[in-house]
Design a binder for these strands. Sequence first.
DNA 1: GGAATCCTCCATCAATCCATGGAATATTGT
DNA 2: ACAATATTCCATGGATTGATGGAGGATTCC
Lengths: 221, 221
Amino acid sequence: MGDPARRAELYDALAQTGKALSSGKRLELLDLLAQGERSVDALAKTAGLGLTTASAHLQTLKQAGLVTTRREGVRIHYRLAGDDVAALSTLLQHVARTRRAAADRARTAYLGPDDTEHLTREQLLERVRAGTATVIDVRPAEEYAAGHIPGALSVPLDQLEARLPELPDDVEVVAYCRGANCVLAHDAVRLLTTRGRRAVRLVDGMLEWRLDALPVESGAA
Amino acid sequence: MGDPARRAELYDALAQTGKALSSGKRLELLDLLAQGERSVDALAKTAGLGLTTASAHLQTLKQAGLVTTRREGVRIHYRLAGDDVAALSTLLQHVARTRRAAADRARTAYLGPDDTEHLTREQLLERVRAGTATVIDVRPAEEYAAGHIPGALSVPLDQLEARLPELPDDVEVVAYCRGANCVLAHDAVRLLTTRGRRAVRLVDGMLEWRLDALPVESGAA
DNA sequence: GGAATCCTCCATCAATCCATGGAATATTGT
DNA sequence: ACAATATTCCATGGATTGATGGAGGATTCC
């Protein structure tokens, strides 16, 4: 039934890709890269890693073929090798949350109590069509520019308080951010509701929207 | 932007599931379990592992929530926790093959030169409907019984040579086995063609058929 | 109750992985 | 050519993982 040694080699080769997904730091880097390409030190800073540590993890991801690099002058930009990689990371995280209670608990501990109401992607599309919702993208402006939900307003979380007057107060506000592990939309909805606005968040975020093949618009606000 | 310590905990918790997928032995066990439940020593024997080693790997998978156990008398049967686990394993392997040439090379080294023609699932369904193909399942009989393509004949590979006369020689024979890494169908097609039969194999195998939500029939031959 | 079977738990040693700091490399600007 | 910036490479020590053999638990059969 086939050469056992070669079979072991095959599965070990496949497991290299699993190894790449076996570190929390690397999953975090992949989540960041799912929003668009980034330089090494941008990634290190955002993820709170030492520069050499970040570089080492990125090398691991690169050797696994999950990311590719592009040099631009003195700096090197990493990006996901393809949407299948984002899909793999998403499915892994979904299975982790579904099948391991500890993972789901860690998620609520980070995101805060899941007290905020959320919409599905379909519900959001419906309400936008009906004009009963304003959609805001609370990620940093660069990420909005790299791709956002059509018609969404860019209101980075740290500007939300100051720009509250800009938001219409007669319709519901729907906030979204990066994806399943992004805390920004949760915080935004909490802030908005304490200010007496009707606010809900989109389930997950931009990553899942894109993987769902829904329309994406790009360019600055 | 959220407590960094809790974020690290979240991603580390998610990475536990990645860790479970970071060993070739464990991927192999998952591939076997995707065909149906198995006892520990059946798995150990099939995968060529020591009993304690197999048990340890299975504990790891269980802690990751990827498999569940069921006791039946003196023996313990492991099974996949759900089809999402099979889908995750499949996607991981697909990404590995697509993104890492080394993994693809290891695959051809194990399966043998990919000289045999193969059909897609749709092509198979078409030909069966048109009556221009006989489908044979070359996995061990127990796996056939646990679920097979409707209308397929159970002809385990080790019986194929002896049962050649049973196969009609006026239509093409389509062989399939477990999945993307299963060598049985490759071997079956090679054997059949050297005997002058027209034989092709189904791309992938039973696992992908089932994940594709195509109809499955169960029960012994 | 006692033996047999199947599996898990524990201890151990070797191998691997991770974080980190310092040296080396590549590119740009002067 | 030289300095500055961004990144990778390398060496090191500490932690984790993997394989394995033997002891311990659970269940069934006699």
